[in-house]
Design a protein around this nucleic acid. Structure first.
Lengths: 191, 191
DNA sequence: GTCTATAACGTGATAGAC
DNA sequence: GTCTATCACGTTATAGAC
């Protein structure tokens, strides 16, 4: 499966570039060079950059689905689910100051082709919806405490994490950690 | 002062484009066209795009300084100062779903020339520092209530607002309003 | 599946006329 | 201060050989 392997490597590289520079700021050559191939090889797997972008976001969605499926199957506690959600941006930051793919795509949203926009919307919806359910479960079990609807709380948390990753680039990683600590405190969680 | 006028118009257009599409996704022609001039005219005022970018951020800083100076001179209450801070992103959203210039620049941070990076860092610092002081004043006067340092609280608020503006693009403006409402509630403010 | 070669275009930028 | 004309370059994308 040499083909699948290259395809995966392309997506890996493109995803890293997206989180490092944004979608408009990387080219087929940026992907080809580290893989030791020419840009035409990338076009073979993803004819247009739109195809690549859509596949990229779809993979993010599938991966998130897999991640949450595992947590649901393991009957993870709502607190663990929330912590697992925090793990995602935490890894981005640790892995070289990357930002949330969703945030990068939202900033460039008005430059994206329609097909990509729909995927971005779906990814956002998917992630916040799952978080909201976990939060609601936590509140029902009196493990988490907050006012208002769980959906609203999920927006606040998602927005803060996304913004904190970006601010961390200019204010240092501690800015992100501070944000996480406060979000947890507000849910009544210890650190 | 036809020159100053054109220069201002260029900066206005560039700023709107930055907030709409990001820094890398607009060109000199994107600026020139609506102003009814050719791209060479833009180069006369701002020889390189880096010059334009630096001037753009510097103007954001000067404008914010002016805004806060006015509030300080008027001896605005801490609550009014906080509300004034919220007004900035609220206007962005209202003015066609723009995002925070700072957020856009942070996402593209790794693609920016050094001179622009320094300006981005300075703008972030300036805005959060002022917000932190206002928050601390509010707590001393028992008008605002929160745990932890004011600097930490300022990070959370800035991150949430920045992220909420971006999420609003895919989840609708209500996402931003929800975020603001919760931030206010957590400070003990009515709506 | 990857290559070379190339097309078609947009970009930032400069020179020199007006 | 703005124009026309132009350059050098990087970009997405395609054709056809291997």
């Amino acid at each position: 499966m040499a083909q699948a392997d290259t395809k995966t490597q392309i997506l890996d590289t493109a995803e890293a570039l997206l989180q490092d520079r944004g979608f408009n700021a990387f080219s087929y050559n940026h992907i080809a060079q580290p893989l030791g191939v020419k840009n035409a090889a990338i076009h073979y797997h993803f004819p247009t950059k739109t195809d690549l972008g859509v596949a990229l976001i779809e993979r993010c969605r599938a991966r998130f689905q897999q991640y949450t499926d595992l947590l649901e199957a393991g009957e993870a506690s709502p607190v663990l689910k929330f912590e697992a959600y925090l793990t995602l941006p935490w890894r981005y930051l640790r892995d070289g100051g990357k930002v949330c793919p969703l945030g990068a795509l939202e900033v460039e949203f008005n430059t994206l082709p329609e097909e990509m926009r729909l995927e971005v919307i779906a990814l956002d919806q998917q992630m916040r919806a799952w978080l909201a359910i976990a939060l609601e479960e936590g509140r029902e079990q009196e493990l988490l405490h907050f006012e208002g609807s769980a959906e609203e709380r999920a927006i606040l948390i998602a927005a803060a994490l996304q913004g904190a990753l970006q601010i961390a680039r200019v204010a240092g990683n501690s800015a992100f950690n501070t944000c996480v600590r406060h979000l947890k405190q507000e849910l009544g969680l210890a650190n």
